[in-house]
Design a protein around this nucleic acid. Structure first.
Lengths: 191, 191, 191, 191
DNA sequence: TATGAATGAGCTTTCATTCAT
DNA sequence: GATGAATGAAAGCTCATTCAT
């Protein structure tokens, strides 16, 4: 890893935290440069402008999340419960590694500054999850509700859980994670 | 109907839509004044500044939601299922009347521009829901998970559902609403 | 005196006080209307705009001061000491009646908002005083210094004296006034 | 010479001239930036806001005037005439170097925008002059009039004299300066 | 006649972006 | 490559002025 790769990372990391805390429009370039410990002008050596920065960040976060979920995904299995478990485990793993990335994705999916590539990247993630939902619905395992609603339901639970963990309000234990996973599964499956 | 009351409403309505679409920092005062069909200066006759506007909006939305939920709430009942049903029905009713208000609340609860009064108003809503959750947990009816996570789970489902309805992707039917309600209940209750 | 004459006076009186305290540019029309106890729009029934108001005020103040000084002025006398005494007495009388008017004149003579008529009115006052000075210089009674400097010298003394009296720092007594008059006279005369 | 020091000076110099000509409230930031030959935003790199600019300017001008007067002041002398002569000479020297600074101080001492530090700085100057006056009054050399009035008297003379010189109406000669000094002295001393 | 709600031009200020160093 | 001083477009906001009542 060379030095400027490091600088690029510093900028992305600083931006991520600030975007989560204050949103894209509430974050100024000087804020990012200060938190990153680089000059304001340096940001423009790595990103064309502020919008390019947020889009790069978004696409990298989505890409990494998709990769994480895909990693070891039991594609051939027809046990939806098992597939669900894998997805949940990997999302938890992703959050553990970079919680802010998950929060960033959650809160920036509708940003007016997202470009086509970002929207497409996000679509790939969404499509993946929708396909899972629809397969389950075809198999009469998952409720016949809008996929968006079911995804949001799971999403909301994981995000909130992780916020609690981040805020130190609750302790992360295997039982807790298992409980949330079960709650989500109970929410979307047919009883 | 008082005319200036109307103008105040025009501003609040325009701001609500824009805040939902673009966030507080991404919305400019000229945008609001144009959408409201009033002069930019007029906004400052009704609100001290942009922050006061967003806080007024937030507090009014929270207040109305709390009022809606409280309206006819079966307080004395010890049937948690019935109480849950009431809350869900009233949130759905609120969303039907003013979906943007619900989306606005959902996306602005952590804004760096919210003042003490707004945070307190939101706390009242949250406390109400937490008490419901905790009562259920004491009675071994609701899962022993962090209340925040369970609330977010329900929240996420309703918000996403309503977004789908708004976008015209799905049709709002009694069956659909019943399904989401059941999904939420299944997510939080002990099986 | 009819009612609207009264309103016009209320506006001029309020403006006078505010212009003295905060200057022309530091005084807003709403400030004037509030202090005058009239609606903001009413001001525009009596004065074309804010500049017309300050110019009217200026011209009326200058006019009244000139009138006061001229009243009983020993024009034919060749006793400069007596003429000086008369001028000083009348300025004191004017200040006693309307101190703010004197302070207003003193602090607004170079305003960028003064129109031709105001400048001319002020010129008449200045010319009058200059002629007095020059007559005294011709008679070798008054020092051969620039008239402006001598006038400013007297001016400064009277203004400051009156500010002290206004602020309640000192008491206005015949001895005090006599003292200031004498000091001024000693400043400008040849010893 | 430090370049940014230069830019700061450019801004202060431009502001000084405009404040003298049009007052604080009559001077806009774009006016200052244009006269200074810098961008409007640049002003805010050196001064927190317009008020901070005028206060910095005020305090620097007062400080320099106090320093000038103190420079070589015959503190131990009990010859009041000599001390007066020194003060007068130094004020003349100060005015010669930067007439606008003197005019600025004269016209901005009561500004509603002055902060505590500015008022204190001005108080130091005023206290110094008052002490001189009071010493003279104790020694029965200076008239028993309010110090403010006597100071204003001298002030007015010097300011007006310098305005005349600036306007080119009169020529600055040793005789002229000596005359004004003598006039002032005659005004405040007991005969 | 008197009003004050409404306006928009223009103010103060911020901040994404550039560029000389 | 890296910087941060400098910029000016555009933000938030004020206020002289108008006009329907």
């Amino acid at each position: 890893m060379n030095l400027s790769e490091t600088k690029r990372e510093l900028i992305l990391d600083a931006a991520l935290v600030l975007f989560v805390d204050r949103g894209f429009d509430g974050t100024t370039v000087p804020m990012i440069s200060e938190k990153a410990g680089v000059g304001a002008g340096t940001i423009y050596r790595y990103f064309e402008n502020k919008e390019a920065l947020v889009n790069t960040l978004f696409q990298e976060c989505v890409g990494e999340l998709i990769e994480t979920i895909n990693d070891g995904y039991p594609r051939t299995s027809d046990d939806l419960r098992e597939q669900f478990g894998h997805i949940a485990n990997q999302v938890i793993r992703y959050a553990k590694k970079n919680l802010n990335a998950l929060l960033f994705l959650d809160s920036h999916t509708n940003g007016h500054y997202l470009d086509e590539a970002s929207r497409e990247a996000y679509m790939r993630l969404r499509t993946f999850l929708c396909e899972f939902i629809e397969r389950g619905q075809k198999n009469k395992v998952i409720r016949p509700l809008p996929a968006d609603a079911l995804i949001a339901l799971m999403d909301g639970a994981f995000i909130a859980l992780n916020k609690c963990i981040k805020a130190g309000e609750i302790e992360e234990t295997p039982e807790l994670l298992a409980g949330v996973k079960e709650a989500c599964w109970d929410a979307i499956r047919i009883h």
